[in-house]
Simulated scan of single mutants.
Amino acid sequence: MISDAPARPILQIEYCRQCRWMLRAAWMAQELLTTFEDELGGITLMPGTGGIFEVRHGAAVIWSRKEEGRFPDITELKQRVRDHIAPDKPLGHADRKRPADP
C-alpha cells in the first residue's frame, strides 16, 4: 500500500564496537523511539571503530561524542532530536529548566 504521508525521518546511531558501546546505543535508540513514536520512521544502529558515538539525521550531526567530549544525557539528547525533527513537540518534564547554580 502506497501512502501519501511524508516519510518520517530515520536517525543513525554510529557506535564504537571496539569499545562495546552497542548496548548504550540500543538503549538510547529505544528511548528515542519511545519518545518520538509518531515522529520517527526508525533508528539504524551502525557499528564503527575508533571511539565513535554519533547520532545523525542524514548529514546533520545531532550529537558527537568527539565534539562534545562526553556521552549525552538522555534528556539532552531527546531535546536535540526534538529541536531537529519536531521543534513543536513538548517533552513534558524534560523541557523544564534546571535551576541555575548559585
Rank of each mutant, 00 (worst) to 15 (best):
A25V: 12
L91T: 03
A59L: 10
P87Q: 12
F71Q: 14
L32S: 08
A7T: 09
A94V: 01
A5T: 11
R98M: 05
P99V: 03
E68H: 10
D83L: 07
P9Q: 04
R17F: 00
I52N: 12
Q79N: 11
T49A: 14
R98H: 04
P72M: 09
E37Q: 11
E67D: 12
D4P: 04
H57R: 12
G69Y: 10
P9T: 03
R17I: 00
A7Y: 01
P72G: 08
T34Y: 13
H57M: 13
M46G: 00
I62G: 11
T35Y: 02
T44H: 13
I43P: 11
E54T: 12
L23V: 09
Q30Y: 04
W63L: 09
D95Y: 02
P90L: 09
R96M: 03
R20E: 14
D73A: 10
T34W: 13
C16N: 06
W27R: 15
R20K: 12
A5P: 05
A86D: 08
I43A: 11
E76Q: 12
Y15L: 07
H57P: 01
K78H: 10
W63R: 06
H93K: 13
T44V: 11
G41A: 13
P90Y: 05
D4G: 01
K66M: 06
A94M: 03
A86Q: 06
I10C: 14
R65P: 00
P72S: 11
T49M: 14
H84M: 01
E76I: 03
E39M: 01
V61C: 13
V81W: 01
G50H: 07
H57I: 05
G51Q: 04
A5V: 07
G50A: 07
G92H: 02
L32A: 10
Q79Y: 01
K89M: 02
I2W: 14
A25H: 14
R24H: 09
S3P: 02
A25W: 03
A29F: 03
E14Q: 13
P90H: 11
G41L: 11
C19L: 10
I85D: 12
K89D: 02
F53T: 08
V81M: 06
A60W: 08
A94C: 03
A26E: 15
E14K: 08
D83R: 09
Q12W: 03
D88Y: 01
I52Y: 04
Q18N: 12
K97P: 00
R20C: 05
H84Y: 02
W27C: 13
K89R: 08
I43H: 13
P102R: 04
R96P: 00
F53P: 12
P99R: 06
P87E: 15
K66P: 00
T44Q: 14
I2N: 15
R17H: 07
D38S: 09
D38Y: 00
M22Y: 03
G50K: 08
P6G: 06
G50V: 02
T49R: 15
